[in-house]
C-alpha cells in the first residue's frame, strides 16, 4: 500500500500540534521561538505558515517521481514502495544537488555543522511500517492532516470539496504537480495563493535530465568510432606523404 498525506487548509486552525509532534519524533528542539520561525530548516522539518487568516503546512511533498532522488549521485534519497522518500545520511556527500533540484525547497542543510547532513521529513517511514499514522496526522485535532492510501485520500478530498464547494477551491494540489506527489493539499483558495509554487510542470522532473542522460551511450559509441576513424585517416595520410617523400628522395639520389 502506498501511503500518502492529505492536508486540508480549510480545516487547519494553526494550533501547531503537528509541528511539536514532529519535533518530538525527531528529537529536535521546540519552543515558542522556533514555533514562530514559520519556515523549514534543519531543526524544523515541517512548518505551519500563516497567510492572513489561513494556514498552510510546508514539508517534503514525497513526490511520486522525486527530483531529489534522481539528482542524488550516491542514491542517498530513495522513493520507497510504501510512499515515503527516505534519506540515508551515511551515503550523503553533501553536494546539495537535491536541494537545488527540489521544487518545494524541502531538503534543508545543517549549515553550521562540521559534518553536516541533509534534513527533511521522511513521512514517518518507521511508524508507517509499524502500521501507525504519521506523528503529525496523529497529533492533528481537526483532521486537517490525515494519513492514508493515496487513492483513498483523493476520494476524501473530492468528497470534502463536493460537500462544501463554497469552502474549497476545486483543485487538489499534488495530484499532477511534478508528476504527482504523495502529500496532497486542498483549501479555501488555490495553494499557489498560500505560497506553494504555482506554475509547476505536470511532467515529473527527472524526465528532463533523463532525455539528456539517455543520449550518453550513443554519444560515446558514435564519438569513439568517429574519432578513431578520423585519427586513423589523418595519421595514415601523413605516413603516406612521408613515404612518398622518402621515395622521391631515394629516386633523386
Amino acid at each position: 500500500m502506498a501511503n500518502a498525506i492529505l492536508f486540508d487548509s480549510t480545516k487547519c486552525v494553526g494550533c501547531r500540534s503537528c509541528e511539536s509532534a514532529c519535533a518530538e519524533k525527531w528529537g529536535n528542539p521546540y519552543n515558542e521561538k522556533i514555533a514562530a520561525e514559520e519556515k523549514l530548516s534543519s531543526h524544523k522539518l515541517t512548518a505551519v505558515v500563516t497567510k492572513g487568516d489561513k494556514y498552510i503546512r510546508r514539508m517534503c511533498m514525497h513526490c511520486m517521481e522525486p527530483a531529489c532522488a534522481s539528482a542524488c549521485p550516491v542514491g542517498a534519497l530513495v522513493k520507497t514502495a510504501a510512499g515515503p522518500v527516505v534519506y540515508d545520511a551515511d551515503k550523503c556527500m553533501g553536494c546539495r544537488y537535491c536541494m537545488t533540484a527540489c521544487a518545494f525547497a524541502a531538503p534543508t542543510y545543517e549549515w553550521e555543522a562540521r559534518l553536516p547532513k541533509v534534513r527533511k521529513c521522511n513521512m514517518c517511514a518507521e511508524r508507517l511500517a509499524a502500521g501507525k499514522p504519521t506523528a503529525c496526522s496523529e497529533a492533528c485535532p481537526n483532521e486537517a492532516t490525515v494519513t492514508g492510501e493515496r487513492d483513498a485520500l483523493i476520494a476524501i478530498a473530492k468528497a470534502r470539496m463536493a460537500e462544501a464547494p463554497q469552502s474549497y477551491a476545486q483543485a487538489i494540489y499534488g495530484l499532477n504537480e511534478v508528476g504527482g506527489t504523495s502529500v496532497m493539499m486542498i483549501g479555501p483558495v488555490p495553494m499557489a495563493e498560500l505560497g506553494m509554487p504555482g506554475k509547476l510542470p505536470t511532467e515529473a522532473l527527472p524526465a528532463f535530465t533523463w532525455r539528456a542522460l539517455e543520449m550518453i551511450p550513443s554519444i560515446v559509441t558514435t564519438g569513439g568510432v568517429l574519432l578513431s576513424g578520423i585519427s586513423w585517416i589523418t595519421h595514415r595520410r601523413t605516413e603516406v606523404a612521408r613515404a612518398e617523400r622518402n621515395e622521391r628522395k631515394g629516386a633523386r639520389q
Binding site: 534522481s70 550516491v74 553536494c95 544537488y97
Partner: peptide, 16 residues
Amino acid sequence: RIWHPLIMWNPKSVMF
C-alpha cells in the same frame, strides 16, 4: 566522501 559516487551508483543522476 568525495569518492562515494564511485561505489554508490545512481546512473539516473547527472551529478553521478
